[in-house]
């Protein structure tokens, strides 16, 4: 079964390369969604149904937003890269990171053996053993998200709030006025 996971990852890498290298705009947007759906399948496979539900919908939303951003301005194709020399330097740098990564990743616990299996002190053990009694939630992920680590979730809700307020502020048509002009609230963007 682990081979299946490897194949899925290779599929995602190919889709990502297509998304980045294709000249057709729609193909790029659809390929990046393919990467997203690849990860959805991987999440289901890795027993993370909670996580898998969110990206399905998020991917659709990103697809709609990206298509909106690209199609409505009437662009069909993308233009090329930055200069050739910079590209070679980048590729060389990324190769170095990759080789270093492969070397050091041998120190990580093998895939399929989570760190909590070895570490007696891992908090995950406590969550799994006492989660239901502590919080009353049978879904341990929810127990972690909204009780043990609820403060993170507050931060996450705040991030979303921030980006919405920020996007509204960026999109507003009229940003500057004279100091004496009164404030007008407008939703036409």
């Amino acid at each position: 079964m682990l081979e299946l996971m490897g194949l899925l990852l290779i599929f995602m890498i190919i889709a990502a390369i297509v998304a980045i290298e294709t000249r057709d705009l729609l193909a790029a947007v659809i390929s990046v969604t393919a990467v997203g759906f690849g990860s959805v399948i991987a999440f289901f496979y890795m027993r993370a149904p909670d996580v898998a539900i969110v990206p399905i919908v998020v991917e659709v939303l990103i697809l709609v937003i990206l298509i909106r951003a690209t199609l409505r301005v009437g662009l069909k194709t993308f233009v090329g890269n930055r200069d050739f020399f910079g590209m070679m330097v980048t590729i060389a740098m990324l190769l170095v990171i990759f080789l270093a990564g492969i070397r050091v990743f041998n120190d990580l616990p093998a895939f399929g053996e989570p760190v909590m299996a070895k570490m007696m002190d891992a908090p995950s053990r406590i969550y799994l053993a006492n989660g239901l009694n502590d919080t009353g939630a049978a879904n341990i992920v929810t127990a972690v998200l909204l009780d043990y680590r609820a403060y993170d979730t507050l931060g996450e809700a705040t991030v979303l709030f921030t980006s919405i307020i920020g996007a509204i502020a960026i999109i507003r048509k009229k940003a500057r006025k004279k100091p004496s002009e009164p404030e007008v609230e407008e939703w036409t963007v």
Binding site: S124, V144, L145, D152, A167
Partner: peptide, 27 residues
């Protein structure tokens, strides 16, 4: 069971990513 903490982290990270993406597209 698999480890629940990474799943909680990823849920948070996905939503953060969505927010950033939406704002970047607006920009």
């Amino acid at each position: 069971s698999v480890d629940p903490i990474p799943q909680a982290l990823v849920l948070t990270a996905i939503v953060i990513g969505l927010g950033v993406t939406a704002m970047t597209v607006a920009l």
